[in-house]
Design a protein around this nucleic acid. Structure first.
Lengths: 220, 220
DNA sequence: TAGATTGTTAATCGATTAACAATC
DNA sequence: TAGATTGTTAATCGATTAACAATC
């Protein structure tokens, strides 16, 4: 199979973030249609040059660029190409630690039920939750995590929606059991070995940022 | 009162995002202690130069920079200074639209109960939820939003945790009623007038990004 | 073929880092 | 005073934009 990256150049996080936004832009369009970088730029509030530059970092399964000169990008090809780059064309197994808080909400999100991400386990410390089901998945006690990881399918991503105070301990346990990537909602920097990836979402922080911008709009 | 911004220079979103992280770093430290940019950088995985540069964009209430040459930054002064820059030293009123999904979870988050953000209303379309309480706040029907906005306190931020399909309509209604800023969890670009600020959180997108990085780690 | 739009190179812009004089 | 660390300027690095030759 042809590699999706043209060369050994590192792709910047900015580019990857925009790829996910390109998917959002494309998902409502007819797969057979062509869309120009100009049209996409218009819809997304970006420049056409940036979109073309971003996409030029990769090559399609068919060997060359995603676009067709004079026509634009075919929605189907671009969409599935980006899915492949992101690795979301295949199923990725997820566990959620912390069923009470955000965890439960995430499980209920239709987006999270999409084919590419498959929640295979939910854990919590609260005894009264253990045994109950959320969206068809039984909540297990946190102490079972290690056993679970050793006996079940590969876990690709662990989502941490636990209180700040226990996040580091739980992460450490999971890493010992072989988990290599985390989506962390606890507002602290997890200390992890360098072969482990952590992506942080600080909801309260986002709210604080927005609070700054709302005061500044139209001030300049 | 002395302005917190030294001049008319625009502050970049990157800087503001880091300010919220500086708060996380500081909140566990003794207010009377001093911390150097070097120490902060170490804890956060940044460079000391960047922290000093970021902070040099602003001046404290006492007229000059936040730091003391030879000593560092006093935790108390820096923390409350950043709070003031972000406008989170005062109470900001929030409404949440969409009680079922993320909305309920956010309400339950202890972080969101902090003094600076005060949830004054929760709305949903589902009749069976209307009238119930989440965290002491009565859920109202979406159709009451306009009336609510006209009769209640000023609403500083609206959090949208509604399905993609209705997000734009609801946002438009809210804007007509005077809401000027949104934290939007629906995965689409809201069309808003230029005096309205929108901050987007795409949780599924974040998961997709992480999925890319987990495959790439240690590859270079 | 003529028109349109990509892929790519070069120019610009902005953000990070390094270095150091100012000063506590 | 000597040591430490800020605040700031200049140098570097990286990301965005502009421009255009390639080509469908």
């Amino acid at each position: 199979m042809i590699s999706l990256v043209t060369d050994k150049e590192k792709i910047s996080p900015r580019v990857i973030e925009r790829l996910t936004r390109y998917l959002r832009c494309l998902e409502n369009l007819s797969p057979d249609d062509y869309i120009s970088s100009e049209e996409m730029a218009e819809r997304m509030g970006l420049t056409a040059a940036q979109i073309r530059k971003d996409l030029s970092n990769f090559i399609s399964d068919f060997g060359e660029g995603f676009g067709v000169r004079g026509k634009g990008y075919q929605v189907r090809i671009l969409y599935s190409g980006i899915e492949k780059i992101l690795g979301v064309h295949k199923t990725n197994n997820i566990i959620i630690i912390g069923a009470g808080r955000l965890g439960g909400a995430l499980l209920a999100e239709p987006e999270f039920t999409k084919e590419s991400f498959n929640v295979i386990g939910v854990f919590d410390v609260a005894e009264y939750k253990v045994g109950k089901e959320v969206n068809g998945i039984k909540i297990r006690h946190t102490s079972e995590i290690e056993y679970f990881l050793n006996t079940k399918d590969r876990v690709d991503i662990a989502i941490l929606t636990v209180p700040k105070g226990v996040a580091q301990d739980i992460a450490t346990t999971l890493i010992k059991a072989g988990v290599k990537s985390f989506l962390n909602f606890a507002p602290l920097k997890l200390e992890v070995p360098e072969d482990v990836v952590v992506s942080n979402i600080d909801l309260y922080g986002k709210l604080q940022e927005l609070n700054y911008w709302k005061e500044k709009v139209n001030q300049w």
